[in-house]
Amino acid sequence: MRRLLLLTLLGMGLYAHEVRYVVSETNATQIFITYGDGAPFDYEPYTIYAPDQTVPFQSGYTAKDGSIVFVPNSSGVWRITAASEDGHGATISYTHSLSSVQAPQTHTRLDRLLLGVGIVLALFGTWALFFSRKSK
């Protein structure tokens, strides 16, 4: 189960040039890249290739802390390249398995409340069925 929570679904009206978006929380892979002294490799370009693909899956610039975050959608060897114009760079091979990442089970108070109500109703239904047959 990869999608855990759908927090917000906002649909804008059907206007020209509209842009819709969905905010979700999901599993992700985060890679930190640093210079040799540990300083972050910040604001530098990177490209990510999915397994056996030649068209980039994602590209952009590293964050202030030198990190890259992406959400792999297939198993296999992902390739990430990051390089700066002054000659620093790295090519990273990362093997991802979709089944290896399990989401933690999280329950909201509403989940627990509904579960409790369900149990009570099931017990009541069983009790009612039992006594209705007995009275006949």
Binding site: T29, I31, F32, I33, T34, I92
Partner: peptide, 8 residues
């Protein structure tokens, strides 16, 4: 988050 810290 799967963390990787890699030097350049």
């Amino acid at each position: 988050l799967l963390f990787f810290a890699l030097p350049l």
